[in-house]
């Protein structure tokens, strides 16, 4: 379990990493609903998160991303994983707030006449006999 102080630091990091945006109509990663998922996720890799938070505490600002890339990656993975599945965020990106299954996605078939020059070039496979 992360301590209250660690959760407070983690919340601060999440908000610093992905702040709310009025222009895009999205919450920050420190939103309470998103944070509750971030905490669950963080506690699955508690030791690595604890180390990263300790390293962040020494820096205290977004320069942490450059100064401690490995530790930043631990926190970025957790925060992004929880932030970019939030329904409000997905809707703001023009996505339906749902998993891939069962609805799936529409795809454009594409233009298969683009193969004309490939066909015109003829066979390219290497004969063996």
């Amino acid at each position: 379990m992360l301590s209250e102080a660690e959760i407070e630091t983690l919340t601060g990091v999440a908000g610093l990493m992905i702040p709310a945006s009025e222009a895009h109509g999205v919450p920050g990663a420190d939103d309470s609903a998103i944070m509750s998922e971030i905490i669950v996720s963080a506690e699955r890799t508690e030791d690595a998160v604890r180390n990263a938070l300790a390293a962040f505490a020494e820096v205290g600002d977004s320069s942490f991303q450059q100064s401690h890339p490995d530790e930043a990656a631990v926190l970025q993975t957790i925060v992004a994983s929880c932030y970019y599945r939030d329904a409000r965020v997905l809707v703001s990106l023009g996505r339906k707030p749902q998993p891939p299954f069962p609805e799936g996605h529409e795809m454009e078939e594409g233009d298969f006449s683009l193969l004309d020059p490939v066909r015109a070039r003829g066979e390219i496979w290497r004969k063996v006999d």
Partner: peptide
Amino acid sequence: PVNAALAGYEWGTLPWGE
């Protein structure tokens, strides 16, 4: 989306903050 964000972090094109 999540993996796009992680790519941005890895490539240094996705900043923290504003």
